[in-house]
């Protein structure tokens, strides 16, 4: 005879045996956990994608770049940290039922919050969970961070789509990440905001690694000019060295794919934008992978938690 407290009794049993709820579960959950990732990898490289200005195609780039990395055989987790608009869901036609908040409050284990995207991509919606890290006691925090560490241990890349603008949250992500892509377009307003982003980061004591991506360019030359311009300005006035990672050409297929709620890399793999993004992914994975950060063996999510609570 089953009653409404069946799950509760199971939980109580396991708690008495000293198990944590995250490890709760029978064979089904074991299988699920095992299938979350095919192959274990070294510590994930955390790449945040950010922009000073909204509407430069940041979320779209995050998704397609993640997929391009998947196609290179990488295990990638896309982390939608855009607290305002759940763009990643919309652009990919996914709707995660749970978000990070459920993990932070211990209601779901991390693997249940992750949804499967195309090409083996895993997607996690952040909800407002991440910023709650600051409000937990050290015991709770430890337990949750160990959940997050699972992600870092098993993926090659964690791509974080941050909100637009330069809020405290966005800054925390940028400072905690191994590196950040600052997305801009050739429009002067977008360039100015990208520079602003670099400037804010340059004023922090923590050294962050920033790379520029110029989106929606007419041709490669326009991309190079804009990338070079911001790079030079940052070097001269902020004493900040940026990499120019590359550009993505303006391409009607992009808007077509957005209308169809599919990533353009999948629906128009031979379009100019898809080729450009694949190139970016190739360059990203070719640049020397950082072993965490220089002289710092700490983990992304612990650093993040520290930034949120400062």
């Amino acid at each position: 005879m089953e009653d409404q407290a069946e799950g509760l009794r199971a939980l109580a049993r396991e708690a008495r045996q000293g198990k944590f709820p995250f490890e709760v579960a029978g064979p089904a959950a074991e299988a699920k956990k095992a299938s979350v990732f095919q192959a274990p990898a070294a510590r994930a490289r955390v790449v945040t994608v950010t922009s000073g200005k909204g509407g430069v195609g940041k979320s779209n780039l995050s998704i397609n770049l993640s997929l391009a990395l998947c196609r290179l055989g990488k295990q990638v987790i896309l982390f939608d940290a855009d607290l305002g608009l759940a763009n990643v869901d919309v652009l990919m036609g996914l709707s995660p039922r749970y978000n990070l908040q459920h993990v932070v409050y211990g209601m779901k284990p991390i693997h249940e919050v992750m949804v499967d995207g195309p090409e083996g991509l895993k997607v996690i919606a952040s909800g407002s969970g991440i910023s709650q890290l600051a409000n937990l006691n050290s015991g709770q925090r430890e337990r949750i961070l160990s959940q997050f560490s699972l992600l870092e241990d098993r993926a090659d890349y964690i791509v974080v789509d941050t909100g637009a603008g330069i809020s405290r949250n966005v800054l925390a992500f940028v400072l905690a990440a191994d590196e950040s892509l600052v997305v801009t377009t050739p429009e002067p307003t977008a360039r100015l905001d990208a520079y602003g982003m670099v400037k804010v980061v340059s004023q922090e004591k923590i050294q962050a690694r920033l790379s520029l991506v110029v989106n929606q360019v007419r041709d490669e030359r326009e991309g190079d000019e804009n990338g070079e311009l911001i790079r030079t300005l940052a070097q001269r006035f902020l004493n900040m060295s940026l990499d120019y990672l590359g550009c993505v050409r303006r391409d009607g297929h992009v808007s077509q794919a957005v209308r169809e709620q599919t990533p353009f890399l999948l629906s128009y793999p031979n379009s100019p934008a898809a080729r450009d993004v694949s190139l970016l992914a190739g360059r990203l994975s070719a640049t020397q992978s950082l072993e965490g950060r220089p002289g710092d063996g700490s983990r992304f999510f612990s650093r993040l938690a520290a930034f949120f609570s400062r």
Binding site: G57, K58, N60, V254, V258, R259
Partner: peptide, 10 residues
């Protein structure tokens, strides 16, 4: 508008 990431469908 579309390039700015606002989906038209839905």
């Amino acid at each position: 508008i579309l390039d700015r990431g606002y989906p038209r469908s839905g």
